[in-house]
Design a protein around this nucleic acid. Structure first.
Lengths: 360, 360
DNA sequence: CTGAAAGCGCTAACAA
DNA sequence: TTGTTAGCGCTTTCAG
């Protein structure tokens, strides 16, 4: 906090100082600074001038104490090293700032002692006006019941049991369905799934969408393989999947895993997309530039963050309003070069005629 | 902020309430909650019990107002969608929490109106105890002079002119030198550079290191090509570089650009690493899984964040101490498959015998 | 349109 | 080891 006259040094100017200098009452300064009505143009100018000259800065602790509001939103973030959560966070920050709110962020590492509940508690103590929980995972308990509105980002509606809980997110199931259907439409008889960690609601939704698409065509879903979102886990899964006889198409729950998978398949002598088609999820910036460029599904993170935050701010500023859910965002499949129609595999699975370029 | 008896509803419990319930003075509650000495074990237990029963939560606005400290660190972040800045941020968050500080984050988009100065101002108003500026860019002005300690992360010492400014970061020049020397040691006669945006200090350092390595071997640095950190810009640069006659090795200022570059070279009929070697920078998680796996230089983001934050916390809690600089972190070059010795190029630059796998 | 007085819930001295 | 007394700098009534 600002200098407080340590060693008898100068104290930061307060609104009374501004008032004195401007020749008005302290309350009037407050009025000007808060943009309230009923201040004459002349007074307003004098106050602003005085504040400027003194280098005055509002003390937000005092304001929070007196008003009971901090104009700060707390964010509980998980996996911010991942593209999806990180993008969501960026969007939230922008939207919050536009609405005049600051963000206090607590990163819950997966497997954190306190978990989401602890993070929420620490934010409440910090006096936030509202809370965003980004990309939650299933921790059993429902930590979302508290005395400020909570926005759950990236979870299906109904996840956070609390009734004051707001939700925003893409229709991940629909996106996953679209990805799977793209492969089926290409002529693949079945689609294998490289799933995300099932503690994440996001991973569950994608798996559900994949399953729905297959079942809608009367196709028995093959056993999914579970990764941890990382390219390394995708690589490991790829070695396992490469051994499956009916492998001609894989839907991976995110792009990183899809890329690791692609490397494993390539090393196993399976070409992408000639032998196996791969679809990712997220459309990370690199997806268009890896080889082969990855077909994937794009999540409109910005729109989700913006819509969700609007909901939250409304709930904060108008506690009696109905809590609605943000509208679903449209599906967007980005078709690049990692998918193609299947082609008959020779029984013995011969290695391709020429070794792949740039292999290990 | 917490409920305040809206509609005559219940007011959140205060420390006086806890005191009353525990049968002690309010000050004693404060003592217990702050872990001060000279509290009998019996009293401590009674207070904690009462607090628990009441569901008491500290009001940090009141504490901040009374104590003049918020235990909050403000972060000015740029490019949090990029791997480097994002990793740094994650490390800062962890380290801050371990030290008992919360983080308030302001994302300065490049080209933001207020710029870093505006972000700093808003953080000061928010009453932060210290400020972290992550991966700064050169905006001309020096916005770092203010009444709280400032830590500049990822900039060369001496960047933030203020004397109270702390610095932490890798020795990016050394890392860039190591990358370049790796290529020279492999036998390449020269190394081209795909630079980052030169407003970023990080980009300048990498360019400087590259230049130093070449000049140390009496080699005239070829004109660098500038990208914007994105794979797309790396791709564009790759098309340009592919036309250069003496192109056998490129050092890219980050991995994303290196990957875009690789795709462009591949499409131009140049194989990586047979025809052209590519080195990246950062060691993003995908670097090991793209094809070919990328040789790159690893930045110890965690160590940088931790060391830097320790410095900052020390400066906050002990304003009179000397401001030292964090120690330099060791260089780490990760050699994978995108680099190889050069081989004589045929004058007419014939396309390779077989087209690359998985091209567009 | 403007001002005066009364806290917000906590910590900081100082006393006991 | 514990309690008392003042504020911290703002916003909120309620009067002018």
């Amino acid at each position: 906090m600002r200098a407080r006259g340590r060693d008898g040094g100068p104290t930061a100017p307060r609104s009374v100082d501004v008032a004195e200098r401007a020749g008005v009452s302290q309350k009037t300064v407050s009025r000007v600074l808060n943009g309230e009505r009923y201040v004459s143009e002349d007074v307003r100018r004098r106050v602003l001038e005085a504040a400027e000259q003194l280098g005055y800065r509002l003390n937000s602790a005092a304001r929070a104490l007196a008003s009971g509001r901090t104009r700060t939103i707390g964010v509980v973030a998980l996996g911010t090293a991942l593209f999806g959560p990180a993008s969501l966070l960026l969007g939230v920050e922008r939207a919050a700032r536009d609405a005049g709110y600051a963000l206090t962020i607590v990163n819950t590492l997966e497997g954190d002692p306190g978990g989401v509940g602890g993070a929420v508690r620490s934010l409440l103590e910090r006096g936030v006006d509202g809370i965003v929980v980004s990309e939650p995972i299933d921790e059993g308990a429902d930590p979302f019941s508290c005395d400020v509105p909570v926005l759950v980002l990236g979870a299906p509606a109904g996840t956070g049991a609390g009734e004051r809980t707001l939700c925003a997110g893409v229709d991940a199931e629909a996106l996953a369905r679209a990805a799977t259907e793209h492969l089926l439409d290409l002529g693949h008889l079945t689609v294998h799934h490289l799933a995300g960690p099932q503690r994440w609601f996001a991973a569950r939704d994608r798996m559900a969408g994949w399953r729905q698409a297959l079942e809608a065509r009367g196709c028995e879903p093959p056993a999914p393989v579970e990764g941890d979102w990382s390219a390394a886990s995708g690589y490991a899964a790829g070695r396992e999947l490469a051994a499956r006889d009916d492998l001609t198409a894989v839907f991976a729950a995110n792009d990183d895993m899809a890329i690791g998978l692609t490397r494993a398949l390539t090393e196993a002598g399976l070409r992408v997309p000639e032998d196996v088609s791969v679809v990712g999820f997220d459309d990370v910036p690199l997806a268009a530039y890896v080889l082969p460029p990855l077909t994937t599904v794009r999540q409109p993170f910005d729109a989700v963050a913006r819509d969700g935050l609007r909901l939250l701010v409304r709930a904060i500023e108008n506690p009696d309003a109905e809590s609605s859910t943000a509208r679903k965002q449209p599906v967007e499949l980005v078709v690049r070069s990692s998918t193609a129609p299947p082609r008959p595999r020779d029984p013995g699975r011969l290695p391709p005629a020429a070794p792949p370029t740039g292999g290990l």
